[in-house]
Nucleic acid binder design. Sequence first.
DNA 1: AATTGATATATAAATGTTTATACATTCTAA
DNA 2: TTAGAATGTATAAACATTTATATATCAATT
Lengths: 184, 184
Amino acid sequence: MSLQYALLGFLNYQPMTGYELKQFMDVSTANFWHAKQSQIYATLKKMAKMGLVESHIEAQNGRPDRRVYTITEEGRADMQNWLARPVTELQPKKELLLLKLFFSAGLDKAAILTQLHLQRKLHQQQAEQFKHETKAVIQQFAANMPQLAKDALLWDATRRFGELYEETAVRWLDETIAMIESDF
Amino acid sequence: MSLQYALLGFLNYQPMTGYELKQFMDVSTANFWHAKQSQIYATLKKMAKMGLVESHIEAQNGRPDRRVYTITEEGRADMQNWLARPVTELQPKKELLLLKLFFSAGLDKAAILTQLHLQRKLHQQQAEQFKHETKAVIQQFAANMPQLAKDALLWDATRRFGELYEETAVRWLDETIAMIESDF
DNA sequence: AATTGATATATAAATGTTTATACATTCTAA
DNA sequence: TTAGAATGTATAAACATTTATATATCAATT
């Protein structure tokens, strides 16, 4: 279960609630690892049972209590162990658009092209976001917390993958649109 | 449930058993949509209940009976409907390597570089396979069944995405390795 | 004055997916 | 000649993930 390690990774920076973990994920790892709020709460509970995290309640004025999770020594050890274990195989991907395209020979040309143009727009937008907004967020983070300079280098590497991936998707869509227009 | 449409897509070409569907998937869609044998059998059963496919038993000499599935008119309609429905959102990805890298600031340089070099080798091999073996399989298919020429164009487009994706991964790994070597 | 969005936690049910296992036969390679 | 791979179908259990729902408060907006 990899979500466990995403959560341990964040809790290794500082203690947090499930709600905060979701927010951190949404602005950082979501492009390569995401989770729903409900899954985060359920996984934290399981991790507490395994002794990887501990939690305590913090009362708040007016608002509901917060359950703050802290990583344990056992949790840190488990995380280090996971980090050191190399990824020895390629991960299988799922790409809905490719699945649809694979079986689309019966559709008419115009319908396929509409699909591809829509996708191009989406990937183009995502590419821009990685290049500008996401990049700025990481740079600001690195400037404000110089003790996390090494971390910021790695965060930016994951951002850069996203940028290259989206550019590749756009390039492939341009190629495929041209192919459909001329040969299909 | 997208697996359903992968199965309908194949059954739209010809009636098949669950075993044969698995084999077809493994040599064609597996790079962007895969499934375990057990999941295929379970999904076929559910599809039969929904009236999208029908099955009949074929006795064999020596070997166990084959349960051959055939797509129904309802199944064809469902498939066409799905094909025509555009994919209006980007699909969230999961990339285990990026998750690990994101939290790897505590690891030593050498350990990270070993990880990245291993990944580079895997992606390089996969890129070669798309460029040569996979390409040859599709070309041979297209040559043998000219009535599927349009289909083969789309199959090759999905193969080409795989090729570009793997090349991008290799390029990103080279960049990241260089960055770690100089700045980390 | 009422609605929406943000803050905050959580469960239930359904769905999707993997891993392990069982059974039975035939062909091929060590 | 014996083990393993390929052919073939299928279920159980576990694990992962999504969707829907419930509750409660505060701040800002309409």
